[in-house]
Nucleic acid binder design. Structure first.
Lengths: 164, 164
DNA sequence: ATAATAACTTTCATATTGCAAGTAATAGTT
DNA sequence: AACTATTACTTGCAATATGAAAGTTATTAT
């Protein structure tokens, strides 16, 4: 069932959909770590319980953030893929990581600090754009999908928000 | 007590701190709606229960996102104010609102759609910058505070991430 | 035919959220 | 000074969500 919204605030409404402990973590695993099957998610570092995973995947699908599909030659393994709506969460994730990088290291010194963090620091928009591009390419090579996507990307009328 | 982190992922770690139903809503109320007292928060549209509010304010303070203080002439009313660490969540909020604006209206048609949404669509970075500036000005005129702030703003080495 | 695997579901324990009411310490009013 | 209102909580308890562990079903691999 769809979430019930606390009010008409756009900030709060986004959190009504993805503002919990797991929703954005799963989106991250798909976008950044290339995970796409139930098993992939359940074996992740974050160690989500399988019952929670099942319920969150259902919510993500109901929210139109992911779609559940299969490869034509395999009836056993389900594939979960981001829709445009899901991909559009990339900038949120990028800002969260940026915040962690700048403000969480003192309370959590072992946060990863590799090469990709440098790219992130240097140009957030480019980083987000690269992630989205990479995911779209993956989608393009994932055969036999009912031409994934759901709602198409919106047309932005603004002039300063272009990705590149 | 500090949150325990699920792993070393910067995305997940941010969610370990602010990834729940209320933390970012409270930050939003402070930043956007100018709320600063326990009463302000408890009377908000989102209708947070007072026991939850008390626990979340404590967590936000422990995380260094807000500070609890008072006006020198009033011992009754506590003031909760954003630190630099808290203010640095502005871009996350802005991206969440942008996502709502683009992708949530079909399932939640009454999301507010006023003049400020146009500003947001037109230039997200400017919108975020304006919010931060406005809040800093408010801080400057809030008398008798133990020179709020906590951790100072970090120095960014990147060249594409400047706010203006 | 048998074993292994993927994707769940079920059960039960624990933790979090939420409602409603209650309390303590100011601050304002008469 | 006494009374009232206000602010900031806390407490008790019910409802919901999360989590660990084991079990089930349908494929796929051997």
């Amino acid at each position: 069932m769809p979430p019930d919204f606390r009010c008409n605030c756009p900030f709060t409404s986004a959190l009504d959909v993805v503002g919990d402990k797991w929703m954005l973590v799963i989106v991250k695993q798909m976008l950044i770590e290339g995970k796409e099957t139930f098993k992939d998610f359940s074996e992740s570092e974050e160690a989500i319980a399988t019952n929670i995973l099942a319920s969150k995947l259902k919510l993500l699908e109901e929210a139109g953030i992911i779609i559940k599909t299969q490869r034509p030659d395999n009836k056993k393994t389900n594939l979960y893929l981001l829709t445009e709506k899901g991909l559009a969460l990339t900038p949120v994730l990028v800002e969260l990581a940026t915040w962690s990088d700048s403000y969480l290291r003192n309370m959590h010194p072992t946060i990863v600090n590799g090469e990709s963090m440098k790219l992130l620091r240097n140009d957030k928009a480019a980083f987000a754009g690269a992630l989205e591009k990479q995911y779209r390419e993956k989608l393009a090579t994932t055969k036999g999908l009912p031409q994934a996507g759901g709602q198409p990307a919106p047309i932005h009328r603004g002039n300063k928000n272009r990705s590149r």
